[in-house]
Design a binder for these strands. Structure first.
Lengths: 341, 341
DNA sequence: CATGATGCTCAAAGCGCTTTGGAAGTCGGG
DNA sequence: CCCGACTTCCAAAGCGCTTTGAGCATCATG
């Protein structure tokens, strides 16, 4: 069913039908009613490709997911972010275009979005320190919003981020208040901007109490369960194990906990743990009482906010271009006063 | 940069340029070289919308992710499936279109795909018993592939599935061989087809040894960590706890394990656990020696297979329309002989 | 009654591409 | 030297929609 067919059926011109459907004022209320009723009856919906060719708007937002041959890994945070963003897209009539590419082709993927004109905007994921993709997107001239920030990148760009520095500084402070002095940090890969900031928060809190950060207590790696487990085993088997561990992801924290328990330590009593919790929908941190004490910020909500901002930019609405979300510090059962081992 | 501009630059007609770029034989090799070089130089890529309007092919595959208000939950398996499928799409020049909708709008989303013509095919996720969406898609006439199957649905449809029945039957058999008699089943929601089949495998294995399934040992629910934990606590606190637990997902198994350990039981020694493992990239089952004994099947690989099949169907290639993957039964540290409690 | 304003509708152009149906140009065979 | 067969290229139509610019009634106003 095309617009032309529908209009012939109604005895109207395509123009009028189009205007009726798109809410233009030049068409009488009676005609509009008649048209929309017919459209519903015959199941007519304008062809997206034709429409966007005519309007110049793709009505779609692009996301690029790089797949690395080295660490074959899809960020678990991604699924929840997508869900949040996707909600907002559908509500506003946008589609979401996902491009899964080998990471060496990532730049081409962005270029492709721009030249092939199949999206109106882009969300940039997982920015690194001084991320070159930001400049690329700026030169491509396609609206975009970054989920996270990129330190050392100058020039303005739109972003939605959690206050990672503050969150980890508060978490560290809290552990220090409980009497912990040897606090380990199990961080994400430290070319990632969020990891850099978390580390800065951690080190800042230590420094404020005159404690020099111990490199032997600081780790960076992929945020998998296994990684958390292995590091914890190694740490606890060492000569001077920490009394508390600060972890960058719930998933890693699960592994850390497993390591602790395998070493015969009871989490929350013998050793403390604070994790960052992205509030992944399928990985709730306990029911009523959280299992883990955590710095908490909903990644799904970040997705919604980023999507909303991007649509605002595309549609030239005047709204803030920077959103900094504060993480809550939520008390769970995984922390307690430092015990002298 | 449009085709017309490029052709003027080259002193050729748009027709010739288009044909050169699309590999038609009517254009000389010399011209083709000249055209492709110019295209590269000026960064020309055909506008997707215009092209697909002209060809009638959207060069995109649609996925619908329903978001439920009740159980706000994005299937974690989804991310990995998407990654696998997405790989194949990009390699074949297809885009992936994700539609995140409230689940009451799911039917509309499929209808929308069909009438708005923005996809050439659809992947159907998480089929239930006698899933009405299959008939819907059949009447819509859009090529589709189901990830999973739908029992009680007659009429052929294309699918990629794991042999869930066989996997759980084997796992149960294995536990029985180890002397276990009271084996609990922590399953996914049992309107889901995969859960029905897993239960059938479990019950079949028990029946083969003359053991009547005990309803008090069978559970169905969302496959979250918390759910596994809570069920396990309840089970182990009961009068006649099981000596082994069969779990439908790694994530749930993590919770089950947590419950076991909280109750003072050592997994693999005091109590056994077998889980199904979808081989999620961020949730490896141990490094060299698997932590959990598991029925194992890569969901990412299923994604690749489903995507490949769908593209074959769209492009009218003649390939099998049904793929049944066998899950491995991988031995880990979570199982051992039954101990009399 | 003439005039302009207003409300409703339409014809036609154009978005950027593919593709059909030729039309020139080239070449070898009769 | 002519003719058919290729080879190489092009003009123009068409994909399904939006949107510009007008046209035709109808209505209130001076």
């Amino acid at each position: 069913m095309t617009l032309k067919e529908l209009s012939e059926l109604l005895g109207l011109s395509p123009t009028t039908v189009s205007r009726a459907l798109n809410g233009y004022p030049e068409v009488s209320e009676a005609t509009r009613k008649r048209v929309t009723a017919a459209a519903r009856e015959y199941g007519y919906a304008p062809n997206t490709r034709a429409r966007s060719l005519a309007t110049g708007r793709a009505m779609a937002i692009g996301h690029v997911i790089p797949i690395s041959a080295k660490h074959e890994m899809v960020n678990p945070v991604f699924a929840d972010f997508i869900a949040g963003a996707g909600e907002v897209y559908s509500r506003n009539g946008y589609d979401m275009l996902l491009s899964v590419v080998p990471d060496e082709d990532e730049v081409d993927a962005y270029r492709g979005f721009a030249t092939k004109g199949n999206v109106d905007g882009i969300i940039l994921h997982a920015p690194t320190l001084n991320d070159p993709r930001i400049e690329l997107l700026n030169t491509l001239g396609l609206p975009f919003v970054v989920h996270g920030r990129s330190s050392d990148t100058d020039g303005p760009y739109a972003w939605v981020d959690v206050n990672n520095t503050r969150a980890f500084q508060r978490a560290t402070d809290f552990l220090l208040d409980l009497g912990h002095r040897r606090i380990a940090l199990v961080n994400g890969l430290e070319h990632m901007d969020f990891a850099i900031r978390r580390r800065a928060g951690y080190e800042g809190a230590l420094a404020a109490r005159g404690i020099a950060p111990d490199p032997a207590l600081m780790f960076a790696g992929e945020m998998t369960e296994t990684h958390g487990h292995d590091i914890t085993r190694a740490l606890l088997a060492g000569p001077t194990p920490p009394s508390a561990i600060l972890v960058s992801s719930m998933i890693t924290a699960i592994g850390v906990r497993r390591g602790m328990e395998e070493m015969g330590l009871r989490m929350g009593r013998d050793i403390s743990l604070i994790t960052h919790d992205d509030e992944l929908s399928y990985f709730r941190n306990g029911a009523d009482i959280p299992v883990y004490t955590s710095t908490r910020s909903s990644v799904r909500d970040a997705g919604r906010k980023a999507a909303g901002m991007l649509i605002d930019i595309i549609e030239r609405r005047d709204t803030p271009r920077e959103i900094l979300l504060e993480a809550d510090l939520t008390l769970g059962q995984s922390t307690g006063p430092a015990v002298t081992v």
